[in-house]
């Protein structure tokens, strides 16, 4: 049996878990190639124009998978990974958008609801659907899940040690590392805020992370932050955002502002992203209070990348110059 997983959205956060889990159950896992012009176009043609680019990309990947000869497509419905909080409505309705848009795909889709206490979604109930649908024995199911969870936790620990989610996944799944090591001649550290599915999709973010790394910039992202440090920031707010990953981004943003090692913050957001329209404004208002350079990069399905190159170069140059000045004591 082959199960397909679209290389999009939370793939970038949970792929190690899903891959190991299905493989432990003796199922072949098929994923789509990196997002390409073709895949984005598929998504754009088959979705409502106002959707944000990551969701369009997901729909593109989904259609691509249908052509790749898989038996089922794993398309979980993310509802909540923290009590009282939710995902963006588009995540919660994503399986519905897809199953009502294309005839006959519903039988092929595996749509378990994801409810969890925290971002470790390896809870038994989230994977019980395999027993109901395919008669996997509870024992085998739990065993596979346990192994998968262990790998995923390693993946997270690797991120906490300072690797981006992508580097961590590559290392855990034993792929050749394509990490560019910064030479640290002129250490600039930038906090990059963005959802995993924007930041690590090389097409959507136009490889922003690697572009920065190749400019001798070391970066810090939300997945490198300890949960308790993030929570400390959130406690200061009178009311949290009720989307878990947005909350993490906001908390990471404030920690970056307070962190003296971080020289500037770049917020990568998709055109039309609802949660980001709120948290971006809050961070923008506060960036002046903390006197930290802050830049928003808004991505969509267009692919011209020169403007991006120019903007991040200018941003990094500005920071370098500022640091040089302070060193000279000017």
């Amino acid at each position: 049996m082959k199960i397909g997983i679209p290389r999009s959205l939370l793939y970038f956060y949970y792929y190690p878990l899903w891959k190991i889990y299905f493989e432990e159950l003796g199922i072949e896992v098929v994923t789509t190639p990196d997002t390409s012009k073709e895949i984005i176009d598929l998504g754009v043609k088959n979705s409502v124009p106002e959707l944000c680019v990551p969701v369009k990309a997901y729909i593109g990947h989904f259609i691509k998978l249908l052509d790749m000869g898989v038996d089922y497509i794993y398309a979980p419905r993310f509802v909540s990974i923290l009590k009282g909080q939710y995902f963006c409505p588009k995540f919660m309705g994503l399986p519905d958008m897809i199953r009502h848009s294309f005839d006959g795909v519903e039988d092929k889709m595996l749509i378990p609801m994801i409810h969890a206490q925290n971002d470790n979604i390896a809870e038994y109930k989230n994977f019980k659907f395999m027993e109901e649908r395919f008669g996997v024995s509870p024992k085998a199911n739990k065993l596979a899940l346990g192994k998968a969870e262990k790998v995923w936790l390693e993946f997270r620990n690797s991120s906490l040690r300072g690797h981006t989610a992508q580097e961590a996944a590559d290392m855990i799944l034993n792929k050749p590392e394509n990490h560019i090591t910064a030479t640290n001649r002129n250490p600039v550290k930038i906090g990059v805020l963005g959802y995993v599915y924007n930041l690590y999709d090389p097409y959507i973010s136009m490889d922003l992370v690697k572009k920065l790394q190749s400019m001798d910039v070391s970066i810090k992202t939300f997945e490198m932050m300890e949960e308790k440090d993030l929570n400390k920031q959130l406690k200061k707010m009178s009311k949290n955002l009720f989307w878990t990953f947005s909350d993490k981004l906001l908390a990471a943003g404030y920690s970056f502002y307070e962190d003296e090692e971080i020289d500037g913050v770049i917020h990568v957001t998709a055109f039309g992203c609802g949660p980001d329209s709120m948290l971006g404004k809050l961070l923008e208002i506060d960036s002046t209070n903390y006197a930290k350079p802050f830049m928003t990069i808004r991505v969509d399905e267009h692919s011209g990348e020169n403007h991006l190159q120019t903007r991040i170069e200018a941003f990094v140059d500005m920071i370098k110059r500022k640091k040089m000045k302070t060193r000279r004591g000017a």
Partner: peptide, 16 residues
């Protein structure tokens, strides 16, 4: 409203 998150989901389903 332009870009309304929940209504985008309903808009996607409306043709059906």
């Amino acid at each position: 409203p332009f870009g309304c998150l929940p209504e985008l989901v309903s808009q996607s389903i409306i043709p059906k």
